[in-house]
Design a protein around this nucleic acid. Sequence first.
DNA 1: TATGCCGGGTG
DNA 2: CACCCGGCATA
Length: 411
Amino acid sequence: MRGKSQSQFVSSLMKMRRRGLIDSCLSQSQCCILSQVYFQCGGAGDPQTDGVAQPASSASPSCSRSISSCIDVPRRSATPPPTPPPPVCCLLITSNEPHTHTALCSCPAQQEVDMDELMAAMVLSSLSCSPPPQSSAHRATAAPWTDSGTVELSDSSSSSYWSVDRGPRSPGPPSPAAEANGRSATPPDEGLDMELDQVLFEEPAPRKRRNSLKVAYRCLWPSCEKVLTSLVGIKRHIRTTHLCHGGEHERCSRSEEDFYYSEINQWDGPLQQSPPSAPQCGPTSSPPSPPSSPSPPSCSTLSRSAPSPCSSIWQVQSEHSYQAPPPSHVVSPGASASCRVTAPSTTCSRQGAAVRVRSVSVGEQWLQHQSAPCRRIRSEAKKCRKVYGIEHRELWCTACRWKKACQRFLD
DNA sequence: TATGCCGGGTG
DNA sequence: CACCCGGCATA
Protein backbone atom coordinates (compact mmCIF):
# COMPACT_ATOMS: atom_id res chain seq x y z
CA MET A 1 0.00 0.00 0.00
CA ARG A 2 2.72 2.36 0.96
CA GLY A 3 4.66 1.57 -2.15
CA LYS A 4 1.67 2.25 -4.26
CA SER A 5 0.94 5.54 -2.55
CA GLN A 6 4.49 6.54 -2.85
CA SER A 7 4.60 5.78 -6.51
CA GLN A 8 1.40 7.70 -6.94
CA PHE A 9 2.96 10.52 -5.13
CA VAL A 10 5.96 10.44 -7.40
CA SER A 11 3.84 10.26 -10.49
CA SER A 12 1.74 13.09 -9.26
CA LEU A 13 4.78 15.14 -8.69
CA MET A 14 6.02 14.39 -12.13
CA LYS A 15 2.66 15.24 -13.54
CA MET A 16 2.72 18.51 -11.78
CA ARG A 17 6.13 19.15 -13.07
CA ARG A 18 5.05 18.50 -16.60
CA ARG A 19 2.20 20.87 -16.14
CA GLY A 20 4.53 23.48 -14.92
CA LEU A 21 2.98 23.66 -11.53
CA ILE A 22 6.24 22.95 -9.82
CA ASP A 23 9.80 23.63 -10.64
CA SER A 24 10.74 22.05 -13.87
CA CYS A 25 14.17 21.40 -12.50
CA LEU A 26 12.72 18.82 -10.21
CA SER A 27 13.95 15.62 -11.64
CA GLN A 28 12.28 12.31 -11.32
CA SER A 29 14.86 11.07 -8.91
CA GLN A 30 14.30 14.12 -6.83
CA CYS A 31 10.63 13.40 -6.84
CA CYS A 32 11.43 9.95 -5.57
CA ILE A 33 13.57 11.38 -2.86
CA LEU A 34 10.88 13.79 -2.07
CA SER A 35 8.32 11.11 -1.77
CA GLN A 36 10.69 9.06 0.33
CA VAL A 37 11.17 11.84 2.74
CA TYR A 38 7.53 12.50 2.77
CA PHE A 39 6.53 8.99 3.53
CA GLN A 40 9.30 8.44 5.99
CA CYS A 41 8.10 11.44 7.82
CA GLY A 42 4.75 9.83 8.20
CA GLY A 43 2.99 11.73 5.59
CA ALA A 44 1.61 8.65 3.97
CA GLY A 45 -1.35 8.30 6.23
CA ASP A 46 -3.93 10.50 4.74
CA PRO A 47 -2.58 13.02 2.35
CA GLN A 48 -5.59 15.20 2.80
CA THR A 49 -5.18 15.59 6.48
CA ASP A 50 -1.53 15.50 7.11
CA GLY A 51 -0.99 19.12 6.51
CA VAL A 52 2.48 19.78 5.33
CA ALA A 53 3.82 18.38 2.17
CA GLN A 54 0.58 17.43 0.77
CA PRO A 55 1.01 15.22 -2.19
CA ALA A 56 0.24 16.64 -5.48
CA SER A 57 -2.83 14.51 -5.70
CA SER A 58 -4.59 16.86 -3.40
CA ALA A 59 -7.18 19.02 -4.97
CA SER A 60 -5.30 22.17 -5.66
CA PRO A 61 -1.60 22.76 -5.71
CA SER A 62 -2.16 26.01 -3.97
CA CYS A 63 -3.59 24.25 -0.99
CA SER A 64 -0.19 23.49 0.34
CA ARG A 65 1.05 26.97 -0.06
CA SER A 66 -0.17 28.72 2.96
CA ILE A 67 0.23 25.89 5.36
CA SER A 68 2.61 26.45 8.16
CA SER A 69 2.89 23.61 10.49
CA CYS A 70 5.27 21.24 12.00
CA ILE A 71 5.12 17.55 11.58
CA ASP A 72 5.99 15.38 14.44
CA VAL A 73 6.97 12.27 12.69
CA PRO A 74 6.54 8.97 14.42
CA ARG A 75 9.28 6.48 14.63
CA ARG A 76 10.08 5.27 11.27
CA SER A 77 8.81 1.91 10.29
CA ALA A 78 9.38 -0.28 7.32
CA THR A 79 11.22 0.50 4.13
CA PRO A 80 14.52 1.36 5.62
CA PRO A 81 16.22 4.05 3.65
CA PRO A 82 19.91 3.96 2.91
CA THR A 83 20.50 6.17 5.87
CA PRO A 84 18.33 6.12 8.93
CA PRO A 85 16.09 9.12 8.99
CA PRO A 86 15.99 11.33 11.99
CA PRO A 87 13.52 10.37 14.62
CA VAL A 88 11.81 13.67 14.31
CA CYS A 89 11.73 15.72 11.21
CA CYS A 90 10.31 19.14 11.50
CA LEU A 91 9.57 20.65 8.18
CA LEU A 92 8.19 24.07 8.37
CA ILE A 93 6.63 25.37 5.25
CA THR A 94 4.81 28.55 4.82
CA SER A 95 4.56 30.97 2.03
CA ASN A 96 3.59 33.78 4.29
CA GLU A 97 6.65 34.06 6.36
CA PRO A 98 9.81 34.28 4.35
CA HIS A 99 11.99 34.05 7.36
CA THR A 100 10.79 30.74 8.50
CA HIS A 101 9.37 28.99 5.55
CA THR A 102 12.49 27.04 4.97
CA ALA A 103 13.55 26.30 8.45
CA LEU A 104 13.67 22.62 8.45
CA CYS A 105 14.75 19.81 10.59
CA SER A 106 15.21 21.56 13.82
CA CYS A 107 15.65 18.30 15.58
CA PRO A 108 19.04 17.40 16.92
CA ALA A 109 19.30 14.55 14.52
CA GLN A 110 19.32 16.83 11.55
CA GLN A 111 23.02 16.37 11.13
CA GLU A 112 22.31 12.89 10.03
CA VAL A 113 20.07 13.95 7.25
CA ASP A 114 21.87 13.28 4.10
CA MET A 115 22.07 15.72 1.33
CA ASP A 116 19.41 14.08 -0.74
CA GLU A 117 16.88 14.49 1.94
CA LEU A 118 17.98 17.97 2.49
CA MET A 119 17.52 18.65 -1.14
CA ALA A 120 14.14 17.04 -1.06
CA ALA A 121 13.15 19.24 1.79
CA MET A 122 14.35 22.22 -0.15
CA VAL A 123 12.30 21.11 -3.07
CA LEU A 124 9.35 20.86 -0.79
CA SER A 125 9.82 24.35 0.36
CA SER A 126 10.28 25.38 -3.20
CA LEU A 127 6.95 23.84 -3.92
CA SER A 128 5.46 25.86 -1.18
CA CYS A 129 6.34 29.04 -2.93
CA SER A 130 6.39 28.15 -6.56
CA PRO A 131 3.81 30.18 -8.42
CA PRO A 132 3.14 33.21 -6.33
CA PRO A 133 -0.48 33.71 -5.59
CA GLN A 134 -2.14 37.01 -5.88
CA SER A 135 -2.31 37.51 -2.20
CA SER A 136 1.40 37.60 -1.84
CA ALA A 137 2.00 39.78 -4.80
CA HIS A 138 3.64 42.32 -2.57
CA ARG A 139 6.57 40.04 -2.47
CA ALA A 140 6.81 39.50 -6.15
CA THR A 141 10.29 40.23 -7.24
CA ALA A 142 9.30 41.21 -10.69
CA ALA A 143 7.35 44.23 -9.58
CA PRO A 144 8.97 45.72 -6.56
CA TRP A 145 7.10 48.97 -6.78
CA THR A 146 3.75 48.94 -5.26
CA ASP A 147 0.94 51.20 -6.04
CA SER A 148 1.62 53.36 -3.11
CA GLY A 149 5.11 53.93 -4.30
CA THR A 150 6.59 51.95 -1.52
CA VAL A 151 9.08 49.32 -2.18
CA GLU A 152 10.08 46.47 -0.05
CA LEU A 153 12.58 44.88 -2.22
CA SER A 154 15.67 43.15 -1.06
CA ASP A 155 14.56 43.45 2.44
CA SER A 156 14.63 39.77 3.10
CA SER A 157 11.33 39.47 1.40
CA SER A 158 12.59 37.79 -1.67
CA SER A 159 10.96 34.47 -1.98
CA SER A 160 14.25 32.80 -2.50
CA TYR A 161 15.84 34.27 0.52
CA TRP A 162 16.65 31.72 3.11
CA SER A 163 17.24 32.82 6.57
CA VAL A 164 17.59 31.10 9.84
CA ASP A 165 18.45 33.92 12.15
CA ARG A 166 15.33 35.92 11.72
CA GLY A 167 13.15 33.63 13.64
CA PRO A 168 12.82 35.46 16.93
CA ARG A 169 11.81 38.59 15.19
CA SER A 170 8.46 37.25 14.25
CA PRO A 171 7.17 34.84 16.80
CA GLY A 172 4.24 33.69 14.80
CA PRO A 173 3.52 33.23 11.17
CA PRO A 174 1.99 36.56 10.35
CA SER A 175 -0.22 37.17 7.46
CA PRO A 176 1.07 39.50 4.80
CA ALA A 177 -1.18 42.23 6.00
CA ALA A 178 -0.09 41.75 9.54
CA GLU A 179 3.47 41.77 8.42
CA ALA A 180 2.99 45.00 6.62
CA ASN A 181 1.30 46.52 9.57
CA GLY A 182 4.04 45.36 11.78
CA ARG A 183 6.57 47.03 9.65
CA SER A 184 4.82 50.29 9.60
CA ALA A 185 4.26 50.10 13.30
CA THR A 186 7.85 49.59 14.22
CA PRO A 187 9.59 52.62 15.57
CA PRO A 188 11.54 54.45 12.94
CA ASP A 189 14.88 54.01 14.53
CA GLU A 190 14.43 50.34 14.95
CA GLY A 191 13.55 49.87 11.37
CA LEU A 192 16.33 52.06 10.28
CA ASP A 193 18.84 50.27 12.35
CA MET A 194 17.77 46.97 11.09
CA GLU A 195 17.94 48.12 7.55
CA LEU A 196 21.26 49.72 8.11
CA ASP A 197 22.55 46.61 9.73
CA GLN A 198 21.37 44.67 6.85
CA VAL A 199 23.16 46.91 4.47
CA LEU A 200 26.34 47.17 6.41
CA PHE A 201 26.70 43.82 7.97
CA GLU A 202 24.74 41.58 5.77
CA GLU A 203 26.45 38.33 5.35
CA PRO A 204 27.21 37.35 1.84
CA ALA A 205 23.93 35.63 1.44
CA PRO A 206 24.80 32.62 -0.62
CA ARG A 207 21.26 31.86 -1.51
CA LYS A 208 20.47 35.15 -3.02
CA ARG A 209 20.50 35.19 -6.70
CA ARG A 210 23.82 36.21 -7.92
CA ASN A 211 24.24 39.03 -10.33
CA SER A 212 20.86 40.29 -9.43
CA LEU A 213 20.51 43.99 -9.46
CA LYS A 214 20.02 45.41 -6.03
CA VAL A 215 18.52 48.75 -5.50
CA ALA A 216 19.41 50.84 -2.56
CA TYR A 217 18.69 54.37 -1.64
CA ARG A 218 21.29 56.70 -0.34
CA CYS A 219 20.53 59.73 1.69
CA LEU A 220 21.94 62.76 0.00
CA TRP A 221 21.84 64.92 3.01
CA PRO A 222 25.32 66.23 3.57
CA SER A 223 27.42 64.17 5.91
CA CYS A 224 24.79 61.52 6.15
CA GLU A 225 25.13 59.06 3.33
CA LYS A 226 22.81 56.67 4.95
CA VAL A 227 22.04 53.80 2.66
CA LEU A 228 18.82 51.98 3.02
CA THR A 229 17.42 49.26 0.95
CA SER A 230 13.85 50.30 0.97
CA LEU A 231 12.26 53.38 -0.37
CA VAL A 232 10.03 53.63 2.61
CA GLY A 233 12.97 53.44 4.88
CA ILE A 234 14.95 56.14 3.21
CA LYS A 235 11.97 58.40 3.05
CA ARG A 236 11.25 57.82 6.66
CA HIS A 237 14.84 58.44 7.51
CA ILE A 238 14.93 61.71 5.65
CA ARG A 239 11.65 62.83 6.98
CA THR A 240 12.31 62.00 10.57
CA THR A 241 15.98 62.77 10.69
CA HIS A 242 16.51 65.69 8.43
CA LEU A 243 13.26 67.33 7.62
CA CYS A 244 10.81 67.12 10.42
CA HIS A 245 12.46 68.23 13.57
CA GLY A 246 9.64 70.52 14.22
CA GLY A 247 6.27 68.98 13.89
CA GLU A 248 4.95 72.05 12.21
CA HIS A 249 6.97 71.37 9.11
CA GLU A 250 5.77 67.92 8.63
CA ARG A 251 3.18 68.84 6.09
CA CYS A 252 5.60 70.81 4.12
CA SER A 253 8.36 68.32 4.05
CA ARG A 254 6.12 65.40 3.49
CA SER A 255 7.01 65.26 -0.13
CA GLU A 256 10.45 66.68 0.05
CA GLU A 257 12.08 63.38 0.84
CA ASP A 258 12.15 62.72 -2.85
CA PHE A 259 14.89 65.23 -3.21
CA TYR A 260 17.14 63.89 -0.55
CA TYR A 261 17.84 60.41 -1.67
CA SER A 262 19.22 58.92 -4.74
CA GLU A 263 18.59 55.52 -6.06
CA ILE A 264 21.70 53.49 -6.45
CA ASN A 265 21.77 50.25 -8.30
CA GLN A 266 24.35 47.73 -7.54
CA TRP A 267 24.95 44.21 -8.45
CA ASP A 268 25.22 41.66 -5.77
CA GLY A 269 28.66 41.85 -4.42
CA PRO A 270 30.54 44.06 -2.04
CA LEU A 271 28.05 46.54 -0.89
CA GLN A 272 28.83 50.14 -0.98
CA GLN A 273 29.69 50.94 2.52
CA SER A 274 28.61 53.88 4.40
CA PRO A 275 31.39 55.75 6.06
CA PRO A 276 32.20 54.78 9.59
CA SER A 277 31.02 58.16 10.62
CA ALA A 278 27.55 56.86 10.15
CA PRO A 279 26.63 57.04 13.82
CA GLN A 280 25.12 60.35 13.10
CA CYS A 281 21.81 61.81 13.21
CA GLY A 282 19.42 59.39 14.61
CA PRO A 283 15.86 60.39 14.72
CA THR A 284 16.18 60.98 18.41
CA SER A 285 19.32 63.00 18.20
CA SER A 286 17.65 66.35 18.24
CA PRO A 287 14.46 67.11 19.99
CA PRO A 288 12.10 69.41 18.25
CA SER A 289 13.09 72.93 18.85
CA PRO A 290 11.25 76.03 17.87
CA PRO A 291 12.71 77.64 14.81
CA SER A 292 14.13 81.09 14.74
CA SER A 293 15.51 80.83 18.19
CA PRO A 294 19.24 81.25 17.80
CA SER A 295 20.20 79.50 20.94
CA PRO A 296 23.76 78.42 21.55
CA PRO A 297 24.83 75.01 20.46
CA SER A 298 23.55 72.44 22.77
CA CYS A 299 24.34 69.09 21.29
CA SER A 300 27.73 68.32 19.97
CA THR A 301 26.42 65.63 17.73
CA LEU A 302 24.49 68.13 15.77
CA SER A 303 27.56 69.53 14.22
CA ARG A 304 27.98 66.31 12.36
CA SER A 305 24.79 66.70 10.54
CA ALA A 306 23.71 69.02 7.92
CA PRO A 307 21.88 72.10 8.92
CA SER A 308 18.23 71.84 9.18
CA PRO A 309 16.33 74.72 7.84
CA CYS A 310 13.92 74.21 10.62
CA SER A 311 16.41 74.63 13.37
CA SER A 312 18.54 77.59 14.03
CA ILE A 313 20.53 75.54 16.42
CA TRP A 314 21.76 73.46 13.60
CA GLN A 315 22.54 76.40 11.48
CA VAL A 316 24.63 78.07 14.09
CA GLN A 317 26.24 74.90 15.15
CA SER A 318 27.19 73.84 11.69
CA GLU A 319 29.22 76.93 11.27
CA HIS A 320 32.08 74.96 12.66
CA SER A 321 32.13 72.98 9.51
CA TYR A 322 33.94 75.78 7.89
CA GLN A 323 36.73 75.53 10.38
CA ALA A 324 36.87 71.83 10.05
CA PRO A 325 38.39 70.27 6.99
CA PRO A 326 35.89 69.55 4.32
CA PRO A 327 34.46 66.11 4.36
CA SER A 328 36.67 63.69 2.58
CA HIS A 329 33.79 61.97 1.00
CA VAL A 330 31.77 64.00 -1.37
CA VAL A 331 28.16 63.47 -0.67
CA SER A 332 26.90 63.80 -4.17
CA PRO A 333 27.15 67.50 -3.67
CA GLY A 334 25.36 68.50 -6.73
CA ALA A 335 22.42 66.30 -6.19
CA SER A 336 21.96 67.69 -2.80
CA ALA A 337 22.51 71.12 -4.16
CA SER A 338 19.70 70.91 -6.54
CA CYS A 339 17.74 68.97 -4.07
CA ARG A 340 17.98 71.65 -1.54
CA VAL A 341 16.08 73.91 -3.78
CA THR A 342 13.07 73.19 -1.73
CA ALA A 343 14.87 72.38 1.43
CA PRO A 344 13.92 75.30 3.61
CA SER A 345 10.57 74.38 4.79
CA THR A 346 9.76 77.96 5.46
CA THR A 347 8.90 78.37 1.83
CA CYS A 348 7.52 75.54 -0.11
CA SER A 349 6.68 77.48 -3.18
CA ARG A 350 8.68 75.46 -5.61
CA GLN A 351 7.43 72.11 -4.66
CA GLY A 352 4.50 71.89 -6.93
CA ALA A 353 6.24 71.24 -10.17
CA ALA A 354 9.32 69.47 -9.04
CA VAL A 355 8.06 67.30 -6.32
CA ARG A 356 7.46 64.40 -8.61
CA VAL A 357 10.87 64.53 -10.14
CA ARG A 358 12.94 61.79 -8.73
CA SER A 359 16.34 62.71 -7.48
CA VAL A 360 17.91 60.41 -9.97
CA SER A 361 17.12 62.77 -12.74
CA VAL A 362 18.03 65.62 -10.51
CA GLY A 363 21.42 64.10 -10.18
CA GLU A 364 21.70 63.85 -13.88
CA GLN A 365 20.91 67.50 -14.15
CA TRP A 366 23.61 68.17 -11.69
CA LEU A 367 26.08 66.21 -13.72
CA GLN A 368 25.27 68.39 -16.65
CA HIS A 369 25.84 71.42 -14.52
CA GLN A 370 29.12 70.05 -13.33
CA SER A 371 30.43 69.92 -16.83
CA ALA A 372 29.94 73.65 -16.91
CA PRO A 373 32.86 75.98 -16.35
CA CYS A 374 34.80 76.19 -13.20
CA ARG A 375 32.95 78.84 -11.39
CA ARG A 376 30.31 77.31 -9.30
CA ILE A 377 26.90 78.00 -10.58
CA ARG A 378 24.71 79.83 -8.22
CA SER A 379 22.52 77.34 -6.60
CA GLU A 380 19.11 78.24 -5.44
CA ALA A 381 19.86 76.97 -2.03
CA LYS A 382 19.42 79.44 0.70
CA LYS A 383 22.62 80.93 1.84
CA CYS A 384 23.37 82.85 4.92
CA ARG A 385 22.63 86.07 3.19
CA LYS A 386 19.21 84.94 2.20
CA VAL A 387 18.43 83.30 5.47
CA TYR A 388 19.59 85.95 7.83
CA GLY A 389 19.68 88.94 5.62
CA ILE A 390 22.21 91.68 5.40
CA GLU A 391 21.09 93.13 8.66
CA HIS A 392 22.09 89.98 10.52
CA ARG A 393 25.42 89.55 8.97
CA GLU A 394 26.83 88.50 12.25
CA LEU A 395 24.84 85.32 11.94
CA TRP A 396 26.36 84.41 8.65
CA CYS A 397 28.86 81.70 8.44
CA THR A 398 32.40 82.88 8.19
CA ALA A 399 32.69 81.89 4.60
CA CYS A 400 29.71 83.95 3.62
CA ARG A 401 31.10 86.89 5.48
CA TRP A 402 34.28 86.50 3.54
CA LYS A 403 32.43 86.13 0.33
CA LYS A 404 33.53 82.61 0.04
CA ALA A 405 31.46 79.60 -0.77
CA CYS A 406 28.95 79.16 1.92
CA GLN A 407 29.88 76.41 4.25
CA ARG A 408 26.74 76.33 6.24
CA PHE A 409 24.35 75.54 3.46
CA LEU A 410 26.56 73.31 1.50
CA ASP A 411 25.88 72.53 -2.09
C1' DT B 1 20.13 94.22 -9.67
C1' DA B 2 20.97 90.87 -6.15
C1' DT B 3 23.52 87.10 -5.10
C1' DG B 4 27.28 83.60 -4.83
C1' DC B 5 31.90 83.01 -4.74
C1' DC B 6 36.64 82.97 -7.09
C1' DG B 7 40.88 84.95 -6.85
C1' DG B 8 43.85 87.67 -4.65
C1' DG B 9 45.47 90.94 -1.07
C1' DT B 10 46.69 92.11 3.78
C1' DG B 11 48.32 91.54 8.47
C1' DC C 1 45.84 81.29 8.54
C1' DA C 2 42.10 84.49 9.42
C1' DC C 3 40.13 88.16 7.42
C1' DC C 4 38.72 91.05 3.73
C1' DC C 5 37.35 92.69 -0.84
C1' DG C 6 37.33 93.44 -6.09
C1' DG C 7 35.23 91.60 -9.63
C1' DC C 8 32.94 88.21 -12.38
C1' DA C 9 29.12 84.96 -13.43
C1' DT C 10 24.58 83.93 -12.88
C1' DA C 11 19.56 84.18 -11.81
